[in-house]
Design a protein around this nucleic acid. Structure first.
Lengths: 205, 205
DNA sequence: GCTCCAATTTGACACTGTAAACTTGACATT
DNA sequence: AATGTCAAGTTTACAGTGTCAAATTGGAGC
């Protein structure tokens, strides 16, 4: 039986008790399970089986199922962030185009990896997990924040505008996942047009 | 042992095989579990225990755990709808005030019953459950739709504005539940002020 | 009294997370 | 080379879960 270490280099099946990079392999297996079967399909035992180790092996790398979920969410946030940046960098570099690019990347990630998107936003306030995830999620939030910064009205609470933009896109993505409006992305641009209203400077008296 | 039927009328403990209104009692028990312990605490067996019946009893009233979740979500959507209407009716009856009232009720429900809010929006596209829930969720969506209707620009796709408002509030509620911005509701009015920009009529050329 | 029926229980099974004890290989020290 | 130590996985066991089939029960209708 060939032991797939999950890495790109083909290593020999060393021995029975040192996988080499089991932690990464388990995360990879977990993402695959997630992609194939949704949130409920993510299971410690199935992860272990897919990585070719015994069912209790993951306990030595993560703090239980919640720990595995947090670890996968860290990887998920990283992909999320990179997706947003990729879309932003592909757009002309006016602040407005950049903001729109970020939002398009946001929606693209939700559509292309819905289960992973579900996972990273499945942690609730005041849980131990969301504290553990703080470090992994902060960079993604920073990307959103930065793209809103050029439109902050002077003297206003900077959190407001940022929260408005963020809520809009987050809510749209969530509603897409519920299938409420048949998801075609055909209406995305019409929808995102409201961003121009949100970022418009305050009316001068 | 006194058998609590979950209803408001005190009925005698009839017998061991005819509960009387077990379905409603199970839903009630499920909501209690949800409130106390979040989504993961909702369990067929714990529901049965709390209703004072055997562990397999729920199977005869719901189609498995998913069926129970759908049934609870139906009740949840109903409470959700009534909460929005209560806030809307408490406001002065201009279309704008009504829209703001609906949105405040939306946020109030998410804050006051976070687990129930999580449950009703936990079903994903193309699942059997979301089809079963269609009938129960439609009235809530209709409430939102109606409150946006007065602001629809003539000739435009009516779905756009509605989706924008809805996404904004939905996203805000979701982000509140994740605890991203310490939830005080102090900033709600500042946040909701963006609604005036969204519903403003299109610029005349 | 009798049968029939629907509601509920009982018992069983597979799967899950978790914890404890055990095994194994790698490495450092001597 | 022998030894000890340690981290990585394994094995075993247990409680909780959803689900199914079969048995039980009490009431309704005759």
């Amino acid at each position: 039986m060939i032991r797939d270490c999950g890495g790109m280099s083909s290593e020999k099946p060393k021995d029975r008790h040192h996988h080499g990079n089991l932690r990464a392999a388990l995360i990879e297996a977990g993402i695959a399970l997630l992609t194939e079967g949704g949130l409920d399909a993510l299971t410690l035992r199935k992860c272990a089986a897919r990585a070719g180790v015994s069912h209790a092996a993951p306990a030595h790398h993560f703090d239980g199922l919640d720990g595995l979920r947090v670890a996968i969410a860290e990887e998920g946030f990283d992909r999320f962030r990179r997706r947003m940046l990729a879309y932003a960098d592909a757009a002309p570099q006016t602040p407005r185009d950049r903001l729109f690019g970020i939002c398009r990347g946001y929606l693209a990630f939700a559509r292309q990896e819905p289960a992973l998107y579900d996972l990273i936003f499945s942690f609730r306030a005041n849980s131990r997990m969301i504290e553990d995830l703080e470090e992994g999620s902060a960079p993604s939030y920073m990307v959103l924040r930065d793209s809103c910064a050029p439109f902050q009205p002077a003297g206003a609470d900077p959190v407001i505008l940022e929260t408005q933009v963020w809520s809009l896109v987050h809510g749209y993505a969530m509603l897409i996942l519920t299938g409420r409006f048949g998801d075609t992305s055909a209406r995305d641009e019409e929808f995102l047009a409201v961003l121009d209203r949100i970022i418009a400077p305050p009316l001068s008296p």
